[in-house]
């Protein structure tokens, strides 16, 4: 046996134990029981521990944040635009002076934008970290569908508004 092998207790177990059982005329099944896999993980050296499969190394599974991420994402996606859009509509309908309404619109639009982007970021984190999550997958397709609808709506809305402006002989965007 090489010096390298004697220094390594993992290799030592494999080599020495079968020879001892043969000399005592023990049944042939005995060597199969004493394999490196059956040594308790706590007694294995760190080098051997790394070679074992993850479940046998008895590493505790990390806590799953899948549902938390998805619910947080959905909450932000619904709450953000609602919490900024409804007050914007109310302020606009009050016909306040621009000095008063402008800062309110600025803050509300920024809040809506930040929450919308945060919802997307959280959904993507959930999709990347928990690839098999059905909830995250459903969220992703809902968000993509809503995005496509919003893009079409913006195109149609701008085209309709500007056509209306043209019919009124008004100037368009400045």
């Amino acid at each position: 046996m090489d010096n390298n092998e004697t220094n390594n207790p993992y290799t030592q177990t494999v080599e020495v134990t079968p020879q001892a059982t043969h000399s005592d005329n023990a049944p042939q099944t005995a060597p199969a029981d004493i394999t490196p896999q059956h040594v308790p993980a706590s007694e294995l050296p760190p080098e051997a521990l790394r070679t074992l499969p993850r479940d046998e190394a008895q590493v505790p599974e990390p806590k799953s944040y899948e549902k938390l991420l998805c619910f947080l994402s959905l909450g932000l996606y619904v709450f953000g635009p609602t919490a900024s859009g409804i007050p914007m509509y109310i302020v606009e309908s009050m016909n306040l002076q621009s000095d008063v309404s402008s800062p309110i619109f600025s803050v509300l639009s920024s809040f809506g934008s930040v929450t919308y982007i945060a919802a997307w970021v959280l959904m993507i984190i959930a999709r990347v970290k928990y690839k098999k999550s059905v909830f995250a997958k459903v969220l992703m397709w809902v968000y993509i569908g809503m995005l496509v609808a919003a893009v079409i709506l913006v195109i149609v809305l701008v085209a309709t508004c500007i056509n209306a402006l043209n019919n009124c002989n008004c100037s368009g965007m400045g």
């Binding site: 914007m88 402008s102 619109f105 600025s106 920024s110 809305l157």
Partner: peptide
Amino acid sequence: IWLTGDPRRL
């Protein structure tokens, strides 16, 4: 919207 303070100016 942030710069103009007017959401109607899309």
